[in-house]
């Protein structure tokens, strides 16, 4: 039986890796993948807690997170295609339309 803390430490590591990736990379798709990594780290926490607390609720949450992630993937990738069509690039350094 693996202690709960082990899973949580792995999850924390993956989450931090995802955070660093989001903060340091410039390619929008890689950033997107890093976000997925962060989501998975959280999922892992949920399932771990669910198992150790003997309740299904955590896993249901994971189910919904996956659904949202799927929706996010669809919309996010469509956004990137649209952006790429305009700018010929998906470098986030180019995405400065927030400042007019």
């Amino acid at each position: 039986m693996i202690p709960l803390h082990y899973y949580l430490v792995v999850s924390a590591l993956l989450f931090s890796i995802g955070t660093v990736g989001v903060l340091t990379r410039r390619n929008a798709i890689v950033i997107f993948m890093c976000v997925e990594l962060m989501l998975n780290a959280v999922n892992l926490t949920f399932v771990a807690f669910s198992n150790f607390l003997g309740s299904l609720d955590g896993q249901i949450f994971v189910f919904f997170v996956m659904t949202v992630a799927a929706a996010e993937a669809a919309v996010g990738l469509a956004l990137m295609i649209a952006f790429f069509k305009n700018r010929e690039s998906i470098d986030v350094e180019e995405m400065n339309l927030l400042k007019l």
Binding site: F32, M33, V47, N51, Q59, A69, A70
Partner: peptide, 26 residues
């Protein structure tokens, strides 16, 4: 990990939805 945590269904959809669908899309 999911399998180890007695959640085989989650493991299955992790592989099918994430590794399968989403990553293929990416």
């Amino acid at each position: 990990f999911y399998v180890m945590l007695n959640a085989p269904f989650m493991a299955a959809i992790q592989v099918i939805v994430y590794a399968g669908a989403i990553m293929v899309l990416i």
